[in-house]
Design a protein around this nucleic acid. Structure first.
Lengths: 150, 150
DNA sequence: AATATTAATGAAAATGATTTTCAATAGCAA
DNA sequence: TTGCTATTGAAAATCATTTTCATTAATATT
């Protein structure tokens, strides 16, 4: 785990950014959950212990982490952006399965292998045909979860 | 073309909705472009000829068309929802390639065949494993277009 | 065609997530 | 310890979208 901590701290310092309490706290929250938290979620989670940290700072910090390539930002269509730590080395590429009723999100890695091959092939084809430099892709499935199906 | 018109008009009537001027105008705009318009885009496009049609109505009409399954709503990450007519019979399933700098969007259908197979397989697997009823999926590629690559 | 019913409309106000502003604070290099 | 300046929190601003509500217009009925 330590290597992961130093990784982002170094990256921060390297860009002339400072290692502050809010940044450490927000990183820790992201680092200790598998959930897809919104800025507000994080704000409330840390507010009891760190009432001094404002929602503005949470937004700013998440933004910074996204720009640094440390965090991924997702939109599941419910009006709140969600943030997820990209654990550089050991995190598997995964996609999302979203319940449109209750908002439940499942990370799945099934079929990812086949998909990676297809995506790579698609990326190459599209890059060539449309002259795009492709940087990322999103695949999401929407539906009703176990409970919401009734 | 006529069959397409009657299709949506019938669907409208069928749900006890009325065929109004704003609805006809907004449908026509969507029906005569391949672009991915936002509510505001549509509002400005029709404003000269129909200054009486308000932005609120554009939003309401688009919403209704989405609920009716006539229109698809997309989020390309620029803070504006985009709307696209689903031309029931002849529209090919397609995905989007989005330039993160200028916002240019390319519809592509390349590799769609392979993808459909994979998606079907994934859907079945996920449905079973996670007990989801999957209704739709989104695949988008993000990158830099020809010009923005420089 | 005239009328009655009620869905649909537009203007203005409200909402709510996110951003910006700005004066005060706190990392960190010297 | 000091000084520089990045970072912060609070409050205000933004801005896409929604809601409210009195008015208008589509359509079924007469």
């Amino acid at each position: 785990m330590h290597h992961r901590h130093s990784y982002w701290k170094d990256k921060l310092k390297g860009s002339g950014c400072r290692l502050t309490l809010p940044r450490r706290v927000i990183f820790e929250v992201l680092n200790s959950t598998t959930k897809h938290l919104s800025a507000e979620d994080i704000y409330f989670m840390i507010h009891k212990k760190y009432p001094g940290i404002g929602l503005t700072t949470v937004y700013r910090t998440l933004d910074m982490m996204v720009r640094m390539g440390l965090v991924d930002k997702f939109d599941f269509g419910d009006g709140h952006s969600r943030y997820e730590l990209l654990e550089a080395q050991d995190k598997q590429h995964h996609h999302h399965l979203i319940c449109t009723k209750c908002g439940k999100v499942v990370d799945y890695t099934d079929f990812i292998k086949e998909e990676i091959a297809l995506v790579k092939q698609t990326e190459e084809g599209l890059s060539k045909k449309y002259n795009f430099k492709i940087n990322s892709h999103v695949t999401q499935f929407y539906g009703l979860c176990d409970k919401c199906k009734k």
